[in-house]
């Protein structure tokens, strides 16, 4: 019964779209003349359809287009700022490239010195080994220091347990803010 009624209601919807064949329309009319409830339902659907068809579009508020164009002008300024940022990055790269020249020169001088005087290589290697030993000792001292500090100051683990959730919160906030630009990208297809 429910299924049959749903089919009839679907036919009513099709009738509103003028998608019923003549025979289907006749069959629907015959049913409506027998069923008062369905006839009332169809009348309500038809009148709603008519109401929606007759309701006019709403005009945009006065000055809307002008405001959009002003917003676009501001957006273009932001683009310009981004371009300036790109110029900044480019200048940074040029500076890096310029710094590369003296570094490479120093390396070249070092290589030439090594090849012309093999004793220098031995001195350099000895210095590197000493530096590595010192660095390892420094790291070990640092680890000991941290360990002592944690045992002396129970606040450290407490701070860590605060910092981790706070970092997670910041991560979520950053994701939330970036979500807008991601969804905007999705909307344009």
């Amino acid at each position: 019964m429910g299924n049959e009624q749903s089919t009839i209601h679907y036919s009513m919807s099709k009738a509103l779209d003028h998608e019923l064949s003549e025979s289907e329309l006749e069959s629907l009319n015959a049913h409506l003349s027998e069923s008062e409830d369905d006839a009332r339902h169809f009348e309500r659907m038809r009148k709603t359809d008519q109401l929606l068809h007759e309701t006019p579009m709403i005009n945009a508020p006065s000055g809307f287009a002008q405001r959009v164009m002003q917003a676009i002008a501001v957006m273009n300024l932001a683009d310009f700022a981004n371009q300036r940022l790109s110029v900044g990055v480019a200048l940074g790269l040029v500076a890096a490239a310029l710094l590369t020249i003296p570094i490479l020169s120093m390396l070249l001088i070092a290589l030439v010195t090594i090849f012309t005087d093999p004793g220098t290589l031995q001195v350099i290697l000895q210095a590197a080994i000493n530096a590595s030993t010192s660095a390892i000792g420094l790291i070990a001292d640092l680890a000991d220091g941290v360990q002592n500090m944690i045992s002396d100051m129970p606040m450290i683990p407490a701070l860590l347990t605060t910092v981790i959730p706070l970092s997670m919160l910041w991560g979520w906030l950053i994701w939330y803010l970036l979500r807008d630009s991601l969804s905007q990208n999705r909307d344009i297809h």
Partner: peptide, 15 residues
């Protein structure tokens, strides 16, 4: 030119 497009479709989009 985009300004003209905005004027042309502002009613459709706003509605």
């Amino acid at each position: 030119a985009f300004g003209q497009l905005v004027q042309l479709y502002e009613r459709d989009v706003y509605n």
